[in-house]
């Protein structure tokens, strides 16, 4: 537990919390695109910059990985921060001009037409899907390919990956909502990863509730055989 201030407001942090997490809990908004409470910080988007004052010294840090320490004075905005956030938004908007989430964020920050050449990418490379798959689900089905302008997120070889269980955790965390998941004719389909998984019906109520791979995974994780045949409601 530590006491600090954010934008002049006194806040109390819980053990292990970052500045961004405390701020969120207190309803103080800090823009961010690559943070999720379930995975480790990655500091890819650089939007969560804040100014911190420790004693006499001030500096600008990423709030998603900076621990909420005792006595910090945090400012979530100042001229310099706004300037770099706007610049970043302009870059995001030129990379992904057609993403509603990005359009909206840019608008809120007063960023209009980007000065840079427009591309039509739909992934901002925040890495959340990669991280949730490895850190939370434990499957490591996704990763990066290449670097620089060619860098993208794919399953290895951009082919259907047997490690992917079509659980949809990536869909859930993607901040720009570009990992569609669909259930059709007894299959769950994750088009972005070229993955099609057969659905299994609950032995009791007959509703589709999981993919075959998910059930295998649950069993490996120690769920007893008989329970693995039932949906959450019937378990």
């Amino acid at each position: 537990m530590a006491e600090l201030t954010i934008d002049g407001k006194k806040v109390v942090s819980r053990p292990g919390e970052t500045i961004l997490q405390v701020a969120k809990r207190y309803g103080i908004k800090i823009p961010n695109l690559c943070h999720h409470d379930e995975v480790k910080p990655y500091t890819a988007c650089r939007l969560c910059l804040v100014e911190i004052k420790k004693g006499k010294r001030t500096k600008i840090v990423t709030s998603c990985d900076y621990p909420a320490e005792e006595g910090l004075e945090v400012k979530t905005s100042n001229e310099k921060i706004e300037k770099s956030r706007k610049m970043l938004m302009e870059l995001y908007l030129s990379r992904c001009p057609n993403l509603p989430v990005i359009q909206k964020m840019a608008e809120e920050m007063g960023v209009k037409e980007p000065r840079f050449e427009k591309e039509n990418e739909d992934c901002i490379l925040c890495g959340l899907c990669v991280r949730v798959c490895s850190e939370v689900v434990g499957r490591h089905a996704l990763g990066y390919e290449s670097r620089g302008p060619e860098r993208r997120v794919v399953p290895p070889f951009d082919e259907p990956n047997p490690l992917c269980i079509s659980c949809g955790a990536c869909t859930y965390v993607c901040p720009v909502d570009v990992i569609p998941i669909e259930e059709k004719d007894g299959y769950r389909i994750m088009e972005r990863w070229h993955k099609k998984s057969k659905l299994v019906a609950c032995e009791k109520c007959g509703k589709y509730f999981a993919t075959e791979e998910e059930i295998e995974w649950l069993k490996e994780m120690g769920l007893p055989e008989d329970k693995a045949k039932l949906c959450m409601d019937c378990r």
Binding site: V130, S134, H140, A141, L142, G143, Y144, E145, S146, R147, P155, P156, F157, N161, L163
Partner: peptide, 12 residues
């Protein structure tokens, strides 16, 4: 190792 990791290095 996850294949995704090896693939990343090989394409990096």
């Amino acid at each position: 190792l996850p294949l995704a990791r090896v693939y990343h290095i090989a394409t990096f």
